[in-house]
Design a protein around this nucleic acid. Structure first.
Lengths: 159, 159
DNA sequence: CTCCGTGCAAATTCTTTGCAACGCA
DNA sequence: TGCGTTGCAAAGAATTTGCACGGAG
């Protein structure tokens, strides 16, 4: 079976880019930490564990390249750092995020919740939507539990 | 009648902050350019026209303060720069944005389109929403016109 | 007098760039 | 050989911090 790495490799080749060892190491780190919204520096440190010779600039260049090819999305949660998130394969749109203002955790919502909203925007504002970014800020189910020890269960059955 | 500046002044006072001349000048610039999503540097340059002695650091400190008090929102469209946007008075939630990938224009949607979506998120993910950020990337009505001279009218009747 | 707020310059942080060297076609 | 890619160091851009001064209560 064709692996995700293989498909990314083809994607690069189709634009005459190569999947060099450094790029592959970077992609692997992203795959292994798919839920984690790593910053460039995070990625660099993780790649460095396996491939100590790599340079930070290369990681930046690789991430930029992957973003350009829409293999990853570059996101920004308001701290001054860009974070990088693998796209779901074949996903037309970017997934959504839940940022907890208590503990800082970032959860993902893969389902597209915006179908109806996008119709409204396209019709009423005559805006041709290509992509979207939706982030909710609030309190995650873990922190809610801590605040109110009564309340338990529910949630977490989506990721 | 009480002006918007007066209410902001009270808001500051209620937290034992003062509306100094520098802060007032900064707020005025934001009020006069409410649609423009200015960067800190933009604000600085505009404030400087009226109050040349002001320092860039002061503008940063003021904007940070205003963001903390939820008078402005700090937003980030993916270029490396933070932009600042006055909140609508009394708005519980942040308004939405339409970013044109052709011309870079940023339009605002003041209506809250996310009521239903938020219900789903709160119920299904057990996430207590405090705020949200929604940005659409696509092509604005102006650029669509240019690409297809046939199509005219519509839109712009919302801002 | 005491603080809060300020200007300026220096420091930090994140990211990009210049350039010589490398490696595969 | 030729060109895309890399590492390192330097440059750059945005933002923050240290510090002495100034003004209102």
């Amino acid at each position: 079976m064709e692996s995700r790495i293989d498909r990314i490799k083809k994607h690069l080749h189709s634009q005459s880019y190569k999947l060099t060892p450094q790029r592959e190491a970077t992609v692997r780190v992203l795959l292994e930490n798919e839920e984690d919204h790593l910053s460039a520096e995070d990625v660099y440190l993780l790649v460095k564990e396996k491939s100590p010779e790599i340079g930070l600039a290369t990681v930046y260049r690789t991430l930029e390249l992957l973003a350009e090819l829409k293999i990853v999305d570059k996101i920004n949660f308001g701290d001054g750092v860009s974070r990088f998130d693998l796209r779901q394969e074949g996903a037309a749109h970017f997934h959504h995020h839940l940022v907890c203002i208590e503990c800082g955790a970032v959860d993902e919502i893969q389902e597209d919740l915006l179908g109806d909203v996008e119709k409204v925007v396209e019709n009423d504002w005559n805006f041709k939507i290509k992509d979207h970014r939706l982030t909710f800020h609030g309190i995650c189910y873990r922190c809610q539990k801590q605040e109110d020890p009564e309340q338990q269960e529910q949630a977490a059955n989506h990721s």
